[in-house]
Design a protein around this nucleic acid. Structure first.
Length: 747
DNA sequence: CTAGGGTTAG
């Protein structure tokens, strides 16, 4: 009897030990070893099965977990909860709910797992309705899950309302609200809340340190870190990575050396710190030194090599990695995409069995960047779970291809849109010259309650610039200041360009002067603005001022300053600057520079020289270059060279109406009417359509566009009548429109 | 063996 009991006891402790071993192996990702232990066990108990289910689930092998769950001999409540937890960790909301409904009895774990499952997948309304049904409201755990769900979705007010209504709050409740503030960069509110807390633990302190790191206030972060009564590994790692993110690698290393205890995360953080600062030699040294590595260690190293373009090293590491995971494989895919090695990227992608949304998005983005939208779309359609990034990548991809109809259709199919969705669409319209659509959607965005960010403003301003819509542009300016983007350089530079293109160079200048720290793009924008408005000398002065300020001009600067010379007829200056650009600044001229110089020489009557320059260009001439030459030929009525330039130009832009008009005008002005007819035939042959004449005016801060064939537009008749009255009035006052060119402009 | 707040990679 005694020995029998002893043997059961020994067996029991053996099972217990094996169960522990399975869990432990699962936690370090050594799933194959865990399976081996499980299979070798002769007497498994329910906990054994539950442990193995959990191990499978946490290593993204959810179908294996389910197979075990269905096969196990005796399920208890924990088995059901474990399986639901598995679905929670694998974002399978539907499957979790099916089990939740079917299970014989539920405890607080079951309820909380299901609620968390909903909140983690953004289904807050479903979570809420479960929470309402929850039988036991006395326990704070489900309340806390709801609060975290709301804060993670930026719904701080609703979180706060729940918090205030809680019958019993524990420290986690307090910390959840605090996390809402610190993680959403509301450090003013966060600090106040922290000070009001009657009790704090190390998590509260860590949240404060993390919050200050997020807003870039490292001094405050350090101040709080030093005041933590009992800092733990997480406190140290948070501070360390705070330094790393801000490029203070030395301080990060000092912290690492001072750490009283290190776990694998501390080592990983140090690797990440070196990777962020592109010190791969140091990173690999830490990687080699560390006592044990996990998948994050490997992924960080692979990503580090990818970042500096050392793909072979990255691939070697991936091959050496004992348990490859999606993140590491995705990092490798990303690397191949960056180097345009799409086939190798796809090969890895196809090998991955459990792809996550990041992996899919990376591959789709690769195809979008390579302008292979059909392949991107094929993958997009195969995706079961899409996030904002998936949709936004597709929208931006279509926009980049100029297929705004497809971009818009996807945008409208989206259930919910974020700022990036709006920005992708609006930027697409702007880049494709559909400025009115860009502005329209900017205002739709406001109606949907989405706040524009710096990128939205930059795109909107660019649309205003191209429409010369000064009044709307000014409104944008006010909105920009009100929204706190007045010092964002993308916005500032767009403002400069907007004012310049609207002919308000003094306003552009004012914006430039009012900005604390301008960059080279600001200088370039202002110089180009002066050039555009015919202020050649001022543009050159600004260029010299820029040099005095120690800002090195780039090729864009010279496009601006050279076009200033060509617009203002500063021929010698322009040629001198061109020489200076190549010789002193060693900037290789691009086609835009040549176009300016051709224009300059043309205006000076040096047509032959201009032609020789184009012929001698080391790079391929573009439409702008030939266009400049053609324009010069028109001024000097040089038919021979004009015809030649036009032929070249037609190769680039065979369907651009204005090129044909220009050539036709040369013929007409030299009296060659037969050739005028020939050009007309050529256009017909090539199917060149007259681009509808387009004009727009701003009335009461709204832009109204008119097209010459736009008779369908309501009120067009009325507008035309008014215009005729205006024209008559102008004529009465002695204005004679120049209709010479219009006569040649056949329809 | 299952749940709520804080760290490292994507």
């Amino acid at each position: 009897m005694r020995s029998k009991l002893k043997s059961i006891g020994e067996n029991g402790s053996l099972v217990f030990n094996h169960n522990m071993k399975i869990t432990q192996l699962g936690k370090s990702g050594r799933i194959e070893e865990a399976i081996k232990v499980f299979k070798q066990m002769t007497n498994r108990n329910t906990v054994t099965w539950n442990s193995m289910i959990s191990v499978y689930a946490k290593n993204s092998r959810i179908s294996d977990a389910r197979r075990l769950f269905d096969r196990m001999p005796l399920k208890n409540l924990v088995s059901w909860n474990t399986m639901i937890s598995g679905y929670l960790h694998n974002d399978k909301v539907q499957e979790a709910y099916e089990l939740f409904v079917r299970m014989p009895e539920r405890d607080l774990f079951s309820w909380n797992l299901m609620i968390t499952c909903y909140t983690r997948n953004g289904q807050l309304e479903n979570a809420r309705s479960l929470f309402v049904q929850l039988p036991d409201k006395g326990n704070p755990v489900c309340w806390n899950s709801m609060i975290a769900g709301y804060t993670k979705n930026q719904r701080l007010e609703e979180a706060r309302r729940l918090f205030d209504a809680m019958p019993v709050k524990d420290l986690v409740s307090w910390n959840s609200i605090l996390a809402g503030y610190t993680q959403n960069e509301e450090m003013g509110l966060g600090l106040k809340f922290f000070n009001d807390m009657v009790e704090r633990d190390v998590v509260s302190w860590n949240l404060m340190v993390d919050g200050f790191v997020r807003v870039g206030d490292l001094d405050s972060a350090l101040h709080f870190f030093q005041r933590i009564p009992n800092p733990n590994v997480i406190s140290w790692v948070t501070m360390l990575s705070g330094y790393a993110k801000n490029g203070q690698i030395t301080k990060a290393r000092v912290l690492f050396d001072q750490m009283p205890e290190r776990n694998v995360v501390s080592w990983n953080a140090m690797i990440a710190a070196y990777v962020q600062n592109c010190q791969l030699d140091e990173a690999i040294r830490v990687f080699t030194e560390m006592p044990e590595r996990n998948s994050v260690s490997w992924t960080t190293m692979i990503n580090g090599y990818v970042r500096i373009g050392k793909l072979d090293e990255a691939r070697d590491l991936l091959n050496m990695m004992p348990y490859k995971n999606v993140a590491a494989q995705t990092a490798m895919i990303f690397g191949y995409i960056q180097c345009m090695r799409m086939d190798e990227a796809r090969e890895i992608f196809d090998q991955i069995s459990s792809r996550d949304v990041v992996c899919w998005n990376t591959m789709i983005a690769g195809y979008a960047q390579s302008k292979r939208m059909d392949e991107a779309n094929r993958l997009f359609k195969q995706m079961l779970k899409k996030d904002f990034v998936s949709w936004n990548t597709m929208i931006a991809g279509y926009a980049q291809e100029g297929k705004m109809d497809k971009a818009l259709r996807l945008f409208e199919e989206m259930m919910e849109r974020n700022v990036v969705s709006w920005n992708s669409l609006i930027a697409g319209f702007t880049q494709n010259g559909l400025y009115m659509d860009a502005l329209r959607h900017f205002f739709f965005m406001g109606k949907e309650g989405k706040k524009p960010d710096q990128s939205t403003f930059a795109c909107g301003l660019s649309a205003c610039a191209n429409l010369a819509a000064l009044q709307v542009g000014k409104q944008f300016h006010h909105l920009v200041v009100k929204s706190g983007y007045g010092n964002d350089l993308f916005v500032v530079n767009a403002l400069i360009t907007m004012y310049a293109k609207c002919g308000r160079i003094s306003s552009a200048d004012q914006v430039f002067k009012d900005t604390d720290a301008v960059d080279i793009v600001s200088w370039n924008s202002l110089i180009a603005g002066y050039a555009l408005n015919g202020y050649g000398k001022e543009a050159i002065q600004l260029f010299q001022e820029m040099e005095k300020n120690g800002v090195h001009p780039d090729l864009v600067t010279f496009v601006g300053v050279l076009s200033a010379c060509s617009h203002s007829g500063l021929i010698d200056q322009g040629l001198k600057l061109f020489k200076c650009m190549t010789e002193e600044y060693s900037i290789e001229p691009v086609a835009e520079h040549y176009a300016c110089i051709v224009d300059l020489l043309g205006r000076a009557g040096k047509l032959e020289e201009a032609y020789q320059l184009v012929k001698g260009m080391p790079i391929k001439a573009n439409a702008g270059t030939w266009g400049a030459l053609l324009g010069a030929c028109r001024i000097h009525k040089n038919l021979e060279l004009g015809k030649f330039a036009a032929e070249k130009l037609f190769q680039f832009e065979p369907h651009k109406n204005s090129n044909y008009v220009l050539l036709s005008n040369i013929h007409a002005e030299t009296g060659s009417w037969n050739e005028v007819e020939e050009v007309r035939m050529l256009m017909k042959e090539r199917g060149v359509e007259k681009q509808p004449g387009c004009s727009w005016i701003e009335v009461k801060n709204q832009v109204h566009a008119f097209f010459s064939d736009d008779s369908a537009k309501p009120k067009t008749a009325a507008i035309c009548k008014t215009l005729m009255t205006l024209t008559a009035e102008m004529r009465n006052r002695g204005y004679m429109p120049d209709i010479k060119s219009s006569l040649l402009d056949y329809r």
